[in-house]
């Protein structure tokens, strides 16, 4: 089986400071991988390098494209990479307002990606937007309201709908449940799990919340000071951590 994403030797320096160093992994279709580590461990740098938001100093990010098979996205032209960013890839930001157009209605937010890939039938766009609002549990009656009138959890669900409407194959998520109430988090996690399963999505989720990765991720990478210190099956890494840092991380979680 061809990996959907194959990363080799990915390295990013900020001057003398290491952002992430020599990261390598293969992600297969349908797999959800979590990246955990404390603030400053390089997990967001890694995610942004993978998603093409930052240019790494070295390495390869090979994506199995629909048309031409595996290609190094770092060597793609910018139009190709941006096209990937609005078709097969999606990026869910921690803060919904970074991923939404706050001055555009909920329907327009969901419809934008469709229009960006050439949809030109208003009725079709609207019915797809309505369908997706339903799938992320937003009342269809809110379709013409602006996201600024939505609660934090609704904004985050709208951002997810906006990202998934074009049926991407790989979703990058940066702390998708950060900043939300615990009750809202649970609902969002359940929603994400269902969507990942039903759409066969692959996902890379950056978070510092170990409970989130236990519920969402099949496998886990633990980062410290820009390096991957441990990787493996999520429950194995959390229940039988091998590296000193992972043991510290797991034992530091407060039990409720």
């Amino acid at each position: 089986m061809t990996p959907l994403l194959s990363v080799q030797g990915l390295t990013k320096h900020y001057g003398a400071h290491v952002g992430c160093a020599d990261v390598a992994f293969d992600l297969y279709p349908g797999e959800v991988m979590g990246i955990v580590g404390e603030s400053g461990s390089g997990k967001s740098t890694l995610l942004n390098c993978l998603a093409g938001h930052l240019t790494p100093d070295a390495g390869a990010v090979v994506f199995d494209t629909r048309a031409e098979g595996p290609r190094d996205t770092l060597k793609m032209s910018e139009p190709e990479r941006r096209m990937l960013g609005r078709t097969d890839w999606a990026f869910v930001h921690q803060h919904a307002r970074d991923g939404l157009r706050m001055g555009v209605s909920a329907g327009g937010n969901v419809g934008e990606r469709l229009m960006a890939v050439g949809a030109r039938h208003y009725g079709d766009i609207r019915s797809q937007a309505t369908d997706w609002l339903g799938r992320v549990e937003i009342d269809a009656g809110r379709i013409d309201d602006r996201p600024s009138t939505f609660s934090g959890g609704m904004q985050q669900r709208l951002q997810i709908a906006r990202n998934l409407v074009t049926g991407p194959r790989l979703v990058f998520m940066d702390e998708p449940t950060g900043g939300l109430d615990v009750s809202v988090q649970a609902r969002l996690l359940d929603l994400l799990r269902g969507l990942v399963r039903d759409m066969g999505l692959s996902a890379i989720i950056v978070t510092h919340d170990l409970a989130v990765v236990r519920l969402l991720a099949d496998r886990l990478m633990v980062m410290k000071s820009g390096h991957v210190v441990e990787a493996g099956l999520t429950d194995q890494v959390l229940d039988d951590p091998q590296h000193a840092y992972t043991q510290l991380l797991v034992s530091s979680v407060l039990q409720v």
């Binding site: 493996g232 099956l233 429950d235 194995q236 229940d239 039988d240 091998q242």
Partner: peptide, 9 residues
């Protein structure tokens, strides 16, 4: 048992 399940290494 956890090792057989792959939970422990």
């Amino acid at each position: 048992m956890r090792m057989i399940y792959g939970n422990y290494r």
